[in-house]
């Protein structure tokens, strides 16, 4: 029985990194969301919000991983300039999407419920977000590889993954015309929403 406390300590130490990384990711998310909400609060319209929010989101979201996964295996056939262009356009599309969803004066209330780590370097933070009187279950997926800073790689609203949704659309584009079709569809989508 003398060894029991030592073993408990050893086991606790073994699980410590996982617990620490989960807390770290959750903290990162909270801070990021707070910054975004503060910017939204001070923005009179979605255009101003888009401008102000872009540098913040570039340090919060892994647009590289998002674009890659939204395209899927077809990404391997993209040339380096095509990859760069696809990431640039997809980044713009995502930022515009989220800027457009904010209505000035209406701010979300976020209740952080739980955070889990499905595997090392990955954390999922479950929240309940109240926006315009409706409650939504929102899951933020974050990743940190080999000590790199945490980044959001997907947002799942009521079970609907943003990346999975774009994957369905971009995969169809890729199958119909390869990388050129993907880039062209992203360009069209952005042009259609240009003010």
């Amino acid at each position: 029985m003398k060894t029991l406390p030592l073993i408990v300590l050893a086991l606790a130490a073994a699980f410590q990194p996982a617990l620490a990384s989960t807390a770290e990711a959750e903290n990162f998310l909270k801070q990021s969301v707070d910054r975004v909400v503060a910017i939204a609060k001070a923005s009179p319209d979605s255009l101003t919000l888009e401008k102000k929010i872009t540098p913040v989101l570039l340090n919060v979201i892994s647009f590289d991983a998002m674009t890659r996964r939204a395209v899927g295996p077809g990404w391997r056939q993209f040339t380096a300039p095509e990859r760069e262009e696809a990431v640039r356009l997809f980044t713009k599309l995502i930022i515009r999407t989220y800027s457009n969803r904010f209505t000035p004066g209406e701010l979300p209330e976020i209740d952080y419920r739980s955070a889990t780590s499905p595997e090392p370097g990955r954390v999922e933070v479950n929240t309940t977000t109240t926006y315009k009187g409706s409650k939504y279950g929102v899951v933020y997926r974050l990743e940190s590889k080999e000590g790199a800073p945490w980044r959001i790689t997907d947002i799942v609203i009521e079970g609907v993954s943003m990346i999975a949704n774009y994957r369905t659309q971009l995969d169809t584009q890729f199958k119909s015309g390869g990388a050129a079709a993907v880039i062209s569809s992203l360009q069209k989508s952005l042009a259609a929403r240009n003010p």
């Binding site: 457009n100 659309q169 569809s185 989508s189």
Partner: peptide, 8 residues
């Protein structure tokens, strides 16, 4: 939310 900023 599902369709506005979509590609298709």
């Amino acid at each position: 939310a599902a369709t506005k900023d979509s590609i298709d």
